[in-house]
Design a protein around this nucleic acid. Sequence first.
RNA 1: GCCGGGAUAGCUCAGCUGGUAGAGCAGCGCAUUCGUAAUGCGCGGGUCGGAGGUUCGAGUCCUCUUCCCGGCACCA
Length: 642
Amino acid sequence: MPVVTLPDGSQRRFDHPVTVDEVAGGIGAGLRKAALAARVNGKLVDTSYLIAEDASLAIVTDRDSDGLEVIRHSTAHLLAQAVKELFPEAQVTIGPVIEDGFYYDFAYQRPFTPEDLAAIEAKMTELAQADEKVTRRVMARDEAVQFFRGLGEIYKAEIIASIPDKEEISLYGQGNWVDLCRGPHVPSTGKLKAFKLTKVAGAYWRGDSRNEMLQRIYGTAWPDKKQLDQYLHRLEEAERRDHRRIGKDLDLFHVQEEAPGAVFWHPRGWTVFQSLIGYMRERQNAAGYQEVSAPELMDVSLWQQSGHLEKFGESMFLTHTPDKRVYAIKPMNCPGHVQIFKHGLRSYRELPVRLAEFGKVHRYEPSGALHGLMRVRAFTQDDGHVFITEDQITSESVAITKLILDIYRDFGFEDVRIKYADRPPNRVGSDDIWDRAEAALKAASSAAGIEYTLNKGEGAFYGPKLEFVLRDAIGRDWQCGTLQVDLNLPGRLGAYYIDEHSTRRTPVMLHRAIFGSLERFFAILLEHHAGKLPAWLSPVQAVVLSITDRQDEYVRRVTETLKNQGFRVESDLRNEKVGFKIREHTLRRVPYLLVAGDKEVAANLLSVRTRSGKDLGTMVPETFAERLRVELGSRGRQVLEG
RNA sequence: GCCGGGAUAGCUCAGCUGGUAGAGCAGCGCAUUCGUAAUGCGCGGGUCGGAGGUUCGAGUCCUCUUCCCGGCACCA
């Protein structure tokens, strides 16, 4: 006699066990049709689930995030079914839901081609239109293993063998195809109406590069065609924002074959880069940091001592020199900073000692990892190392966290998530030291009043860390800042200070970066702003344009005056129509276009237009300068047009 | 590093089954002096990523290689 409680609190009484589908039908035919799955007592189940006892029930439709997930999961199954029909020898493995879609990994004798993809998608559409019923059954573990072995699906058999004993083994079938799956799934394939296969790729079995490579097919699925189209449109938008595209269009930088993973910065790009450095330098100095510079090349023995060579030797650049010594090009700045700290006797009274460097580091990243400015082999860190006593960990960590968050706000990133990463399997230092470091960093987090999610086992090899993740304008997350507590390296490298009892003590070192990699942060900014950098970062902040050559002298004079005040201003005296000039500079994302025709010259005015096409009217050059100064000083919070 | 795809003019791209390279934009020249996203006409420009090979003949076919792209793995 189950009593079913619905989300609105109402109850329905049955004198026999009922399926979700029946309950939905009892509420309304429309709901029954829309039902994809359900939550019974909070657990996600199929619509065929039999409710035998009192339970709470929420029907899941495509309006719920649960529903979307079910759709995607079922579409992954549809994909596997289609592949098995077209390529019977392919073996199925796993097919999970991911952000915006799903994938399915197959073991097959050859990679799938784009043509295969089209054929598979067509077959999927056909199978969906056939509206085949999806059925579920439970099988004993050994029986299931035998079953899949019998089908020649050795991967599935292996997966089942690894499922914990207490879990039920469920199989889902549609048409003449059966797959192992936890479920739930849509009641029939006809519920899958808007999907698209997006790409093929290789992927290692169980994510381990020592294993064989499988053929992965990615796809996306949505409740309806409209949402699918919106998603595809979003992908196009992301492509338009690609920093590699923008970098080319705006003539900011380039890369070439002779220097894989390294950047040739062009004048405009370097101007922006220098603005970032200038800004950070100002903020760091104000926060009590001292800027330093350590050698690019140091004897490899130093890296042996620090432990980096052992852990990361494969990705270090080493040199061959006539003196037969082996020097490493620095892959990071910390050992250099420790040398600076060590030079001379340090008293506890001096701590915290905060050293910062815009250090260019080189890492031999795997070739397949390189990606535009996001992942390079030569990059610049805004690296800082703070030497402190153990008592100072909390207060200093709080100060750093606040600085990081405040700086992100200056760049328009308000939505910042923080992750706490604890000890990795591969590490140096005793468990006792790790216990203390982890406890101190956690204490600092709560003192700073921040919330974090745990990134288990993702810490640095010498200490736990906080990772700061930005969310950009189109919702993508980027890990940039980091704060790491290190009770290992200073000791390994022989750093010490003299405490109040005249005894030598090993300092704690905090590693911190705010931009992380300047190259990468630059790319994130370009994509976040779609190339329209705020004026304070724009390589060219304004262009003064003439309409005919009668204004040449005036334009020259105004440009000079603005440049002398420190603004990045250019003039455009070319014999071109003003519309052409406007178009060109707009495409170059110059924030302000200052037009001077005969009327403006006569009255000592400038006609001001923004890159978004807004006409700000005319004003005297001094007014423009004053308002631009305010905008730059407020880092774009007070814009000229406001 | 692994799987797949790609590389043709400064940029974006075309070039069927092998028969000595083409467009648009950009550049340069000339004309035009023009009011807020493209003025007109003309001209120049490529050892087709690199090295080998097959062929009478290779941008096109084969092998190797470099780099780039999409994933995977990696990311101090």
